[in-house]
Computed example of a mutant assay.
Amino acid sequence: MFAREAVTEEDIHRVLAAVRLDDLVSHLPHGLDTPIGVEGLQLSGGERQRLAVARALLADWQVLVVVEVTSALDGVTSDEVYNALRVYCAGKTLVIIAHRLPRIDPTDQVVLVDQGAGTVTPGSRAG
């Protein structure tokens, strides 16, 4: 089982496109069936991050916590991954822990922590 019982190949390709891994998969010799090594060692750090996000987005969950989920990505790809998170997490709880504020909108709350003290800003826009 990839992430949940009812996941289809179409679902997989849709989420891979959302996190910009569709081009990589299209160039693999056996597509989705291509071995990528133990713990994905044949992938770059950014590809591993995006694959982890894709798997999480295909899972059946109500709360998702991501930590430094785009730390190995360039700005454009990072924005696209955060957009995928926003779309796939609609109606669910998404907690983003990051040193750089993502450009994800809308957010219900932003908590900025500086030297252990947190400031909650309801209805803030991150970015």
Rank of each mutant, 00 (worst) to 15 (best):
F2H: 06
F2C: 06
A3V: 06
R4C: 04
R4F: 09
R4L: 12
E5N: 03
A6E: 08
V7P: 10
T8R: 10
E9K: 06
D11S: 09
I12A: 14
H13M: 14
H13N: 13
H13D: 12
R14W: 02
V15P: 02
L16Y: 08
A17P: 07
A17L: 05
V19W: 01
V19D: 03
R20Q: 15
R20M: 10
L21K: 06
L21Q: 07
L21S: 09
D22E: 14
D22A: 15
L24P: 05
S26C: 11
S26R: 11
H27Q: 13
H27G: 10
H30N: 08
H30T: 05
G31V: 11
L32I: 03
D33Q: 12
D33A: 13
D33M: 08
T34R: 14
G37K: 15
V38N: 15
V38T: 14
E39Q: 15
E39H: 15
L41C: 15
Q42F: 15
S44A: 13
G45M: 12
G46I: 14
R48L: 14
L51W: 07
L51Q: 07
A52Y: 10
V53S: 14
V53M: 14
A54M: 05
A54K: 04
A54P: 00
A56N: 10
L57E: 04
L58K: 10
L58E: 11
L58W: 09
D60E: 14
D60N: 09
W61N: 04
V65R: 00
V66K: 06
V66D: 05
E68H: 13
V69W: 03
V69F: 02
T70A: 14
T70K: 01
A72P: 04
A72M: 08
A72L: 12
A72E: 03
A72G: 11
L73F: 05
G75T: 06
G75R: 06
G75V: 07
V76D: 06
T77I: 13
S78L: 08
S78Y: 04
D79G: 08
D79A: 13
E80V: 02
E80T: 01
V81W: 00
V81Y: 02
Y82G: 08
N83A: 09
A84F: 03
A84W: 01
L85K: 04
R86M: 02
R86H: 06
V87W: 02
V87Y: 11
V87A: 09
Y88V: 00
C89E: 02
C89M: 03
A90D: 06
G91E: 07
G91T: 01
K92N: 07
T93H: 07
L94K: 03
V95N: 02
I96P: 00
I97G: 04
A98C: 10
A98F: 05
H99W: 09
H99A: 13
R100F: 05
R100W: 03
R100Y: 07
P102V: 07
I104F: 05
I104E: 06
D105P: 00
T107F: 03
V110M: 10
V110K: 04
V110N: 10
V111I: 11
L112S: 14
V113E: 05
V113A: 04
D114K: 09
Q115A: 08
G116V: 11
A117W: 11
A117S: 11
T119A: 09
V120R: 15
T121H: 04
T121K: 05
G123F: 06
G123T: 02
G123I: 06
S124Y: 10
R125H: 12
A126K: 11
G127L: 07
G127C: 05
